[in-house]
Amino acid sequence: MDRPDSDIPDGLKPALRRLDGPVAVWPGFDARGLATARLAAARRRRMLIRGASLAAAAGLALAVIIGPWRERGARGDLNGDGAVDMVDALVLARAVDESKAQRSWDFTGDGAVDRADVDRLALGAVRLSGGGL
């Protein structure tokens, strides 16, 4: 290369600029452009807020669904409130009385779900102070 690349002849630059022509916009051009931008910005803000609300709602829903599910995993938490307590013992007692007890509620491990399991659950609840069996 025989000369610096930025060396465009002085006369050529203004000549090219003149050929490129001036910018002529109609009255209201800026107003329209800026109004459109404001509208888009407002829409975007609403979308961001809506998105944040949706995310919060989704988080809440997940907390509602997953939270108790995880807690229900605690052995003995029959009502799924996150604690193993006397209420669970009452739930079990009622289930046994109504023959609606589930096999997994056999806390004594004797193959049957009966009053002995209610006693074991109640004892565990009292001893562990809500901790589980």
């Binding site: 000549a15 600029r17 003149r18 050929l19 490129d20 022509g21 002529a24």
Partner: peptide, 17 residues
């Protein structure tokens, strides 16, 4: 660039070429 509308010409300028 040829025939570009609004190309500027004026006093002291050599006009759009």
């Amino acid at each position: 660039l040829t025939g570009r509308a609004g190309a500027v010409s004026g006093p002291g300028m050599d006009g759009p070429s």
